[in-house]
Computed example of a mutant assay.
Amino acid sequence: MKLTKKRSHYFAAMLVLPVTVAFVIDAPATAATNPYSDVTVKDGHYDAIIELTEQGVVTGVTKTLFQSTKPATRGEAALFIANALGFDQTSGKNPNFKDLTTNSPYYGAVVALYERNIIGGYTDGTFRPNAILKRSEIAKMLTLAFELEVANVTKTKFADVNAIKDANTKRYIQTLIDYGITMGTTATTFSPYATLTRGQLTTFLHRAITATDDFTIISVE
């Protein structure tokens, strides 16, 4: 298992404390209620959608519709990531994006991610919260947000990724593959410029949380 730098440091710190260290074994959780009429157990993203909805990480487009196949936007991705990582969304310096007002539902999340250099704006001074995300774009956001160990390789098994000129983009995609967060659309293609759906975004988030939180260490009195 790969740990983030943050978790590795935390683990090391716990070892020097004069306490008994124990692994936490969570009690079996009760089945979550499905609030969405358009999400069924046949949906490949079902478990991620229901679990992260219950935890307040993701939300539907309405209280009863999730729209799993709808394209995910930059604003939604920022909000869901900030929710997943528990970032404070009530403070921070205004980045003054032309198209992001302080009363936007994404404002606090965008500020939190912007201050941590996870996301940025465009050269024209906009953030474009309603712009549709590509699969390659979410790879960078998740890698930076979850502080994943960036892959060193720039040549992958995916021909369409190898064709990308930017080496960092290749590394971010390979990073998600290494952590088991994503896989190709076929055995030899990743489709880096394909639209990311809300269902895919939720599954990626769920896997990222799992990949960086395989165990928890607590001090026991």
Rank of each mutant, 00 (worst) to 15 (best):
M1T: 11
L3Y: 14
T4H: 05
T4E: 01
K5A: 08
K6L: 13
K6R: 12
R7N: 02
H9V: 07
H9E: 06
Y10K: 09
A12S: 11
A12M: 13
A12F: 12
A12T: 02
A12Y: 07
A13W: 15
M14C: 02
L15P: 01
L17A: 04
P18F: 05
V19Y: 14
T20L: 01
V21H: 03
V21E: 09
V21C: 08
V24T: 08
D26V: 09
A29K: 15
T33K: 14
P35W: 10
Y36A: 06
S37R: 08
K42Q: 12
D43K: 04
Y46L: 03
Y46K: 08
L52E: 03
E54C: 07
E54D: 11
Q55L: 15
V57T: 12
V58H: 01
T59E: 14
T59I: 02
T62D: 08
K63D: 06
T64F: 05
T69G: 11
P71C: 06
T73N: 11
R74V: 01
R74W: 03
R74Y: 05
R74E: 00
L79K: 11
F80K: 09
F80C: 10
A82W: 00
N83Q: 14
G86F: 09
F87L: 14
S91E: 10
G92F: 03
N94G: 13
K98Y: 00
L100E: 05
L100K: 04
L100T: 03
L100Y: 00
T102G: 11
T102A: 12
T102N: 10
N103T: 12
S104L: 03
S104N: 06
G108I: 06
A109L: 05
V111T: 08
A112L: 07
L113Q: 10
E115T: 04
I119P: 09
T123P: 03
T123G: 02
T123H: 02
G125H: 03
R128C: 02
R128K: 11
N130P: 09
A131W: 01
L133E: 06
K134T: 08
R135V: 13
S136V: 13
S136I: 13
E137L: 07
K140V: 07
K140H: 04
L142R: 07
L142A: 00
T143M: 14
F146D: 00
E147L: 14
E149N: 14
E149K: 14
E149D: 13
V150K: 06
V150I: 06
T156E: 11
K157G: 14
K157R: 15
F158M: 04
F158Y: 08
V161W: 01
V161G: 10
A163K: 09
I164R: 05
K165E: 08
A167E: 15
R171F: 13
T175M: 00
L176Y: 04
L176M: 09
I177Q: 03
D178L: 15
G180E: 07
I181N: 09
T185S: 12
T185F: 05
T188A: 05
T189N: 09
F190V: 12
S191D: 11
S191I: 12
A194E: 13
G199N: 04
Q200T: 08
L205Q: 11
H206I: 12
A208H: 04
I209L: 01
I209D: 01
A211D: 04
D213I: 08
T216E: 15
T216A: 15
I218N: 11
S219E: 12
E221W: 06
E221D: 06
